[in-house]
Design a protein around this nucleic acid. Sequence first.
DNA 1: AACTCTGCCAACCGCACTCTT
DNA 2: AAAGAGTGCGGTTGGCAGAGT
Length: 249
Amino acid sequence: MVRTPSCDKDGLKKGTWTPEEDHKLMAYVATYGCWNWRQLPKHAGLSRCGKSCRLRWMNYLRPNIKRGNFSQEEDKLILQLHHSLGNRWSAIATHLPGRTDNEIKNHWHSSLKNRSANTSKSKPNSFKNKFSSNDEKKRNKNVLDIDSVLDHATANILESTPISSLSITTSSNTNYKNSGVEDEACSSQVTAETISDFWGEPFLEDFEGKINCTNDNFLEPLFELGIICPPCPNDFYGIHKEQTYEILW
DNA sequence: AACTCTGCCAACCGCACTCTT
DNA sequence: AAAGAGTGCGGTTGGCAGAGT
């Protein structure tokens, strides 16, 4: 879980992310998107490798991440999918909205693997519910006040970017150690009044409220922030080049 | 109360794949 | 076609917290 902060040979920080680092990453991604994970930490003022930033964003900071206990339906689905897909966690995760491959993988190794083994031995009701109130408490022990993060992001947007008329609606729930905040799920809205042609750079806009994608990496955050929507709601993360996306603002 | 054991899970690592030049 | 860069994925590690003794 919590790793002792340390630095690698390049002076890049490793280990647990601090709230300050999360603030920086969220503010940067909310403003500029994740256009290049390798370059991102440098521009965001983070002493982290791009890989670490990507992992942190994908698994914890991204909007719409679902935290807390896995429901029985989710467990059942994971078991079914694992039976047919094997350890292809990312493929399994696509069937569980809001769950990350890492979370599913951890859940499998900590709980479902044994359950699966027990089931195969035909031992109905032989396992207890592993998610006691203590487990739930543990899961929620480090929840970040996402509103404060997004307030911070808004401040950064206003201070450092020329983006205008940007309206971002997002929700998330992120754990922190000793944050003292226990919201299970938070939502917030970020509004900025300035804009540049930044958002236009990676796209070819046809001025009819549509975007033709030329760079995959720019679209996902726009989906997640509710700025554009894909042609098909079920294709939220199925970003494709040469496809037209609708602008929501 | 103190110590040990165990479960959980955030984060790292290395490999594979895709894309660009 | 080959090489390099960037990204995604799955396996594994490390350490905290709670349970047990």
